[in-house]
Amino acid sequence: MRYIAILLIFLQSLWGYAYNELLLDAQSRIYPKLLMLEENISSRHEISPIVFTVVYAPEDEFVAERVVQKIESYYDHSFSGIPFEVEMSAFDELELSRHKDAIYILKGDDDQMKRTIKLAMKEKIPVFVYDFKDLRFGALFALTIEQSTVIYLNRAALHKTGLLFAPSLYGIVRFVDAE
């Protein structure tokens, strides 16, 4: 028994996180809409598509694939007439020069999260996260389900990035100050 316990504790593994299917579905549906409320996004993308990137840890590749499928099923390469593409990228392969419109981060370890969000904020890229606790790293949006669906908008991250959204969005979200 002792050896089994030691094995369980110390074995470094590659996989592990069970995602909530409904939450993934809600975020896949709602996050692109939040992005569409960013000021001037449509004028910047009359021809070139908006690239919405799902960022994942290597062990979550299958989950990321499913999220991409979900988003594509909701928004079939176009959002209100604006070209819209969903891509996926592992943390280590993320190129912010290419994935510059928005990133949606699934689970990752704290270091990966911190590093990725910091870089994205520097480039003024809106960051959406799966888990609301990752707002503490400076992500902009997190959708959770409480008594009802709640969208948290990180006020500190909003100020730092200087991003602007349609005023009506501010009436829907709940502000938090998380750094």
């Binding site: 939450l23 809600a26 709602i30 009802s148 669906t149 009506s168």
Partner: peptide, 25 residues
């Protein structure tokens, strides 16, 4: 923008109800 916001609110309500029905909330 108004259309996006309207559908956004509608989506939030839909998922909220769904989450309650599956005890996620």
């Amino acid at each position: 923008e108004s259309l996006v916001v309207d559908t956004l609110v509608s989506d939030m309500n839909t998922f909220g109800k769904l989450a309650e029905s599956v005890k996620m909330s």
